[in-house]
Design a protein around this nucleic acid. Structure first.
Lengths: 123, 123
DNA sequence: CAGGATCCAAAAGGATACTG
DNA sequence: CAGTATCCTTTTGGATCCTG
């Protein structure tokens, strides 16, 4: 089952901690692009190790692109969503909608993101 | 971020190992209902500990219902999807579609579920 | 700036055995 | 049948320090 099930395998890709939030963060950037340090600033609590790990995984999975500008120091690295990455935004939004619909009451504060366009998530 | 983000929290609920597959398995049952042992039989590889753990989590989250029939021994326990559980099926299907669209080529055997209605997943 | 390296803590999951 | 209990392994994530 594990080896052959599309859902099982796909869940494996997208369900890791921070992953979907990272995709959202990149999506928020101008032209779907954001730099490493900007993403890190968005994710309060993430460490550089985990962030670079996730970014590597996502790049390997073809969900994001990595573009390095090392013409001048300090170098800058830009991450952007690929087409498949952009395709994930719909799923992320559906997950959000499900959460708002069914989970809003359970762990709630007024600070939770509950607008159609979320202030925190921008989705 | 962790505390207030709907997506972050919702991901936490649905991304655990086996969770979505369990939901699918229950969905496959007659009237969206399935017994513990039947679910276990569906998930090749899962242990009873993990299965009962997931079922408890999902019940607590209001995604599934648990109905016990202990009139005669051996007792039987029936699990079914709640409305919020049924609502997740759409998301699961979208995840599958995403996986089939973007991941089919990457780790592929012909045995992967790739029909509109999957033989393994029934979704 | 964008990470890599190292070490460590915690969590998650699996194997096995047992029970009302 | 539907789980528990116990023990153990693996995975994951975090803290801290370092570097081209």
């Amino acid at each position: 089952m594990k080896e052959n099930c599309t859902i099982y395998n796909t869940i494996d890709i997208i369900s890791k901690k921070w992953t979907l939030l990272i995709i959202l963060s990149i999506h928020k950037g101008t032209n779907n692009t954001k730099r490493y340090s900007e993403i890190k600033k968005d994710m309060s609590g993430i460490t550089s190790k985990i962030l670079s790990l996730r970014l590597k995984e996502l790049e390997k999975e073809g969900v994001i692109n990595r573009k390095i500008d090392d013409i001048k120091i300090p170098i800058k690295v830009y991450y952007s969503l690929t087409d498949s990455g952009k395709d994930l935004l719909k799923i992320i939004q559906d997950i959000k909608i499900w959460g708002l619909k069914w989970k809003k009451q359970s762990k709630l504060t007024t600070r939770i993101c509950n607008r159609t366009i979320c202030k925190d998530c921008n989705i």
